[in-house]
Design a protein around this nucleic acid. Sequence first.
DNA 1: GGACCTTTGAAGTGT
DNA 2: ACACTTCAAAGGTCC
Length: 374
Amino acid sequence: MPQLNNGGGDDLGANDEMISFKDEGEQDEKIQENAFTERDLADLKSSLVNESEINQNSNAAVVRRGQPDEQRVYTDKHRDHIEDVNKHQDGGMYKPPTYSGYPFLMLPDPYLPSGSVSPSSNKVSVVQQPHGMHPLTPLLPYSNEHFSPSPPHLPTDMSQKPGVHRHQTQDISGFYSLPPGGVGQITPSMSWQNQPVYPLSSCGFRQSFSTSLPSSSSYSRFPHSLVLGTSGMHPTGIPHPAIVPPSGKQDHEQYDRTMYAKPHAEPKREKEPKKPVIKKPLNAFMLYMKEMRGKVIAECTLKESAAINQILGRRWHALTREEQAKYYELARKERQLHMQLYPSWSARDNYGKRKKRKREKQQDSTADNSLDCS
DNA sequence: GGACCTTTGAAGTGT
DNA sequence: ACACTTCAAAGGTCC
């Protein structure tokens, strides 16, 4: 976005930071994009082999060999980066989204000069194209006025103040009952029910996309099922994909099947006395993973998520700031939308829903280490 | 059947 | 303010 590039041009971070970003060996990864997958796969496989051989001594250290410091740097960097972005947005370079259509609203890359999609972002596009719509593809003409982490009426720090009641300050109906043609050139098929951003049927195999795809598998993970029953209904009457029946996981299949099958919801509802679980909104990396998983699976013929996630983690770091910015922005919008849909929801609501064995295990390993050290 | 693995980031909790 | 913990997705693996 030209505006962001102006005024110091550090919309995505200072140039020097960018340089350091690339100095960390990222450039090679970008340049060797084509070799990336093969290298990933080879590395991963060897890592997995090594891991299985050495794991008893060093756990997953082998897999992450040579990366921990890097990753920490990246993490900090991304954090700075986002702050940079937000800073700029707050600075007026980046105006608040009206949210009149966020769910369907896929943005052009406002961070890129000329607002176009960067060549490297084509990686993403390629995956998306079978769907006919890249999740990041602008369904609506992007306007600065539609972007800001902290709209005057919806301050970003709303989400940063746990416990503070989130007022539904925006007219949610504005982006749920989006009238055909009401926002730009959105077609009915692009409506909220189409999951504008995070398509996918479970695995994200966009390649399998067809026009006959249930409208539920759209680009957002907020499919707005009409049939979740009351348990999945937002007060606005619009269900949200983050709502998961207490009985089980929220899988896409379930959503897809019930999405438009109103009559079937009733019987099941009787068996769901518990409160539905509202899941956390996805962060940038999760969104990226969701989008790229299918591609990695196809390229690497891997299925194991742990392995795939390692690859995706590396690729994430290999992304340019601009590319990552797209996902940060999407994540931000997810959070805002989530916040509006569930003003009283807190991440704490889902705490304790998982067993804490991991923690216990860590403590055990710590104990083991102490034993080793002694 | 359910925890684990593995990743990053957001948010909650504890000090 | 900072460090730490938990959860979000995903699907094979293991108990």
